[in-house]
Design a binder for these strands. Structure first.
Length: 281
DNA sequence: AATACAAGCAACCGCGGCGTC
DNA sequence: AGACGCCGCGGTTGCTTGTAT
């Protein structure tokens, strides 16, 4: 299947967006809605490729984007979701209202993965790192940033694991009710987590305390979901990726939504006011 | 104050999935 | 069935800002 370039790149602007470009894009989308990214730049009077416009909108201009630091509760949720979903940032972002996949990905790479490593956990598997004595079997890894600069001081040892070829991740389509559309905003960052995932990052969704907390991170505590207890990452992912896993996770997510519903009203007031104060236009 | 280094983040790139013809 | 076009995703890059020397 051939893949045409997204657009002719001759004469198109690249790099950082200026205020004027932002305004043009914003006004066009406000008037016509998003979509048709290929033709949008021309119609909006922008010398950008459609991809660039989409990215700018999704990651910066969208009105429902929550600005400001990632809260500890959001961190907690990101870690737990990552333990379950892996690097599927868009799926993770779909569960953090107002946060973009890019933001979460960056935050993970710059903060959370390093923190997990410093606490002795493999950020990929969320399991404790194993220090092996045999140097021949040892593999040193660095963080992404460090790889780029080769100046890392964060060198860790990870256990050599047999390669497991996971089934390809499933991209959810509109026919699946599980994922929230990006624009779905249930306006809740108010989970009152009492123990962070960093305490036991390998535990994924399992060791979340009791449901009485009524927090987001604990929404998988239900006994129905013991499938995820003490299973390897591979098993966990396989369950998720398989048809059985889909329905299971869908069920879990419904419970999650119910939890959010309980805090919905209060959240709307608080988050709404914050968002309003942070709007730049 | 100047320079070097590190960290953070916005943006780009290429790939793959899906819909249409 | 295959070609094509569009869209969205994850990985990566490189610029900007902050901090240390």
């Amino acid at each position: 299947m051939g893949r045409a370039p997204c657009c002719s790149k001759i004469g198109l602007h690249r790099g950082p967006w200026c205020t004027r470009e932002d305004t043009l894009l914003l006004k066009y989308i406000q008037a016509h809605g998003e979509g048709n990214w290929r033709s949008l730049p021309k119609k909006a009077g922008l010398l950008r490729c459609g991809k660039s416009c989409r990215l700018r909108w999704v990651n910066y201009l969208r009105p429902d984007i929550k600005r400001g630091n990632i809260t500890p509760d959001e961190e907690d949720l990101i870690i737990r979701l990552h333990s379950l979903l892996g690097n599927r940032w868009s799926l993770i972002a779909g569960r953090l209202p107002g946060r973009t996949d890019n933001e979460i990905k960056n935050y993970w790479n710059t903060h959370l993965s390093k923190r997990l490593i410093s606490q002795g956990f493999d950020p990929n598997t969320h399991k404790p790192l194993v220090v092996q004595q045999d140097k021949n079997k040892r593999k040193t890894t660095t963080t992404n940033n460090s790889d780029r600069t080769s100046k890392s001081k964060l060198i860790v040892e990870v256990s050599e694991k047999p390669k497991i070829h996971l089934p390809k991740p499933i991209r959810f389509t509109g026919t699946t009710s599980f994922p929230l559309p990006r624009n779905d905003s249930f306006e809740s960052d108010q989970c009152n987590t009492t123990s962070t995932a960093l305490d036991k990052p390998w535990s994924g969704f399992v060791d979340c305390g009791n449901n009485d907390r009524g927090n987001m991170a604990g929404f998988l505590d239900d006994d129905d979901h013991d499938d995820f207890v003490n299973v390897s990452d591979f098993e966990c992912r396989s369950k998720f990726l398989g048809s059985e896993g889909d329905s299971c996770l869908e069920k879990l997510y419904e419970e999650y939504l119910q939890v959010l519903e309980t805090n919905h009203d209060a959240d709307l007031v608080q988050v709404g006011s914050v968002d309003e104060s942070l709007l730049i236009w």
